[in-house]
């Protein structure tokens, strides 16, 4: 059994910089209520909780949530969390606070160098975690992962840095998968695809990748590509071009927006790229097409 209570805090330990990205990591057991011990406030870190036993009534982002054993909660910097009655609740839980390196120009979280998640993958994972509407998730498999992290940190055997960080990466990835799986019903392809199409149209200027689209549908890229081809007749990126061009056609008919702006707004790299794609598909350039509607 893991030692309880247990707490790692990087400032108080001798090896200050052993896990510089972990602000706090601990396991505790609350037997009694300490009033005002957990007030609702904005998180400064990426905060993850895992309930071992007991019952916790919290308010997360203004919503009441009750957490039971096997539940985890993921709070991102800037989101709000606190006890529903100002205290933690009765029971045992793990918590871990991770430092986020910075928030990049697009407003997304960036993890530190410790993480082995590829940058392109993290862009997707981070985006999905941020769009998550349900911070409380079932995550029974985390129990052993937290225990391993605890014993690695306590024992500091060789390789503990790598193992702890590997588990942290795994947890973030599993959370991301969980978010997409609970957001989409993996039974109703047309419905999930409609939701995806909505996301694409909302952010058409974004350079969508197949990985991103697949993740939003809770699928791997191979299955995703095959399913989309089957359903729409087009590979995902060609289907996306259909949407880009149809939106561009709509904008071309409005007279007061110039072609470069249309190109960028509908997700083409440049007006040149837009022009070639448009011509390949429709047989004429955007300019010629626009003239058709302004001349008569």
């Amino acid at each position: 059994m893991p030692h309880c209570p247990f707490k790692y805090q990087h400032e108080t330990l001798a090896e200050v910089n052993r896990f510089p990205h972990i602000v706090e990591f601990g396991l505790r057991n609350n037997n009694s209520v300490t009033l005002d011990s957990f007030e609702v406030r904005k998180a400064n870190y990426l905060q993850l909780y895992y309930i071992v036993d007991g019952k916790f009534d919290w308010i997360i982002n203004g919503k009441n949530e009750t957490l039971y054993p096997g539940d985890s909660a993921l709070i991102l910097p800037g989101q709000e969390i606190g006890g529903a009655h100002g205290y933690f609740g009765i029971g045992t839980l793990y918590w871990i606070y991770l430092k986020v390196e910075k928030i990049d120009s697009e407003g997304y979280l960036v993890l530190g160098k410790w993480s082995r998640i590829k940058k392109s993958e993290w862009q997707i994972i981070g985006k999905i975690l941020e769009s998550n509407q349900k911070p409380v998730m079932r995550a029974g498999e985390f129990s052993s992962m937290f225990q391993v992290m605890q014993s690695e940190i306590e024992n500091s055997e060789i390789g503990s840095f790598t193992r702890v960080n590997y588990i942290l990466d795994s947890i973030l990835i599993l959370l991301c998968r969980q978010v997409t799986r609970q957001a989409v019903s993996r039974r109703d392809f047309p419905k999930s695809f409609t939701n995806l199409e909505e996301s694409l149209r909302k952010d058409l200027s974004h350079k969508w990748t197949v990985e991103e689209m697949a993740t939003l549908m809770g699928l791997g890229t191979t299955t995703f590509t095959e399913k989309v081809k089957n359903y729409t007749g087009f590979p995902p990126l060609n289907y996306l071009i259909n949407i880009r061009i149809s939106e561009a056609i709509r904008l071309l008919k409005l007279k007061d927006i110039n072609i470069t702006d249309i190109a960028l707004e509908t997700g083409f790299y440049s007006s040149q790229h837009f022009s070639t794609t448009f011509k390949k598909l429709t047989g004429h350039t955007p300019n010629e097409y626009r003239k058709r509607y302004t001349s008569n």
Binding site: F234, N242, S246, I249
Partner: peptide, 12 residues
Amino acid sequence: DPDQMFITMLYV
């Protein structure tokens, strides 16, 4: 979207 239908038809 009539334009998406047209483009899709043309593309196919």
